[in-house]
Design a protein around this nucleic acid. Structure first.
Lengths: 199, 199
DNA sequence: GACGTTCCGATGCGGTCGTATCGAATCGTA
DNA sequence: TACGATTCGATACGACCGCATCGGAACGTC
């Protein structure tokens, strides 16, 4: 058993490189050669880690989803009052909105994959699962917030969770389009959230 | 001056072909050869109509924007009570949400260009202009609706116009992701619009 | 230290891309 | 009717794509 290499780490390393390429040049920049060069490995290494380009792209998508989830989770953990569902809901949605260059890069990649998913069922399935998880989380938080009396009791949690995701996605788009910056986007989100709070 | 050809018509014909290709295969499908084949012309004809591929893509984007604008305008014109700004506002936003395969195709193309625009300043500028026009229209409608007493007077027209565009964009995304169909999306939009009406 | 397995980097192969070029066909004009 | 400007279709070109192949380097085992 000679020359063992950390396969998983290598895959993440390459995924990170592809991530950067997509964030800079869009999906067109995600070629095997550029990925290898950016990751500092040879093209053969990329081919051994991923049997095909499609597999590489799905891995990158899942890698990105995981990164976003972790970023949001970190924000929730770092928020002051982790016992309040209403605050956790706020922090969750705020955490999705990009505020600096790293998170902006994530959002650009997210949009690139969204466009790809519109014509590629395999990618669409991955994205749908990610959205289902997010919707379930928000749903739980809304119900808990209603239980605490922090959120209006007349809200339909399912409907409101979908509406919040929809609005947040729209905000991300508007930021990428340059029609919002993180400040105005967060203000708009805050305005939206304020309408949910119990009076 | 021999062999004159209707340049503008040919450009539209090719743009329509590219439009179809993008709606089916994403931006990757927008190649000169496929465009020529789909439009039923030779590759040379495409090259004479557009000096470069980038020019072709910007033309297709503007062509698509025009189509969407016309579709929305038609919906406004066809609505029962053209004198009510509040109804015109509703019809405008509803008209943006795709309800059938042709409008779904438009939305897929819109998303493809959105992803492209995130890394291509030239396309981004075109999109930004389109959004500015839409925002101005909605802004006017909101102010008029407030003047008629149909819409809540405490709304900030600028802020609310942006929020409506944001939400509608998010709805389009959710539809493409398969997390909404046109029925539930329109219901969500209607729910959102109801919150704007004067009580 | 020799061996055998596994990994690495490089190169080759069809294919397709955008673009350039060029003779043939076409039509208004003289 | 003959001409010449202009468009047409086709082909050529260099570059890059994803993928396959392969000899040699690297390392655990004996």
């Amino acid at each position: 058993m000679p020359r063992q290499v950390d396969h998983a780490a290598r895959r993440r390393q390459i995924a990170e490189a592809v991530f950067e390429l997509i964030s800079e040049q869009g999906t067109e920049g995600a070629t095997l050669r550029l990925a290898a060069a950016r990751a500092g490995v040879s093209m053969g290494a990329v081919q051994r880690c991923f049997s095909t380009k499609a597999e590489m792209m799905t891995f990158v998508l899942e890698y990105m989803n995981q990164r976003v989830s972790e970023r949001v989770q970190n924000r929730i953990d770092a928020s002051g009052d982790p016992d309040s569902a209403a605050i956790m809901l706020e922090q969750t949605l705020i955490g999705i909105v990009p505020v600096d260059e790293p998170s902006l890069a994530e959002t650009r990649v997210w949009l690139a994959f969204a466009a790809q998913a519109a014509v590629d069922p395999a990618l669409a399935a991955i994205q749908r699962r990610q959205y289902a998880d997010l919707a379930a989380l928000i749903n739980v938080l809304i119900r808990a917030g209603q239980g605490d009396g922090d959120l209006r009791a007349d809200l339909d949690p399912d409907q409101e969770a979908d509406a919040l995701i929809t609005f947040t996605d729209g905000l991300n788009l508007q930021i990428l389009f340059g029609r919002h910056d993180s400040r105005t986007a967060l203000a708009a989100l805050e305005h939206r959230l304020a309408a949910l709070r119990a009076r």
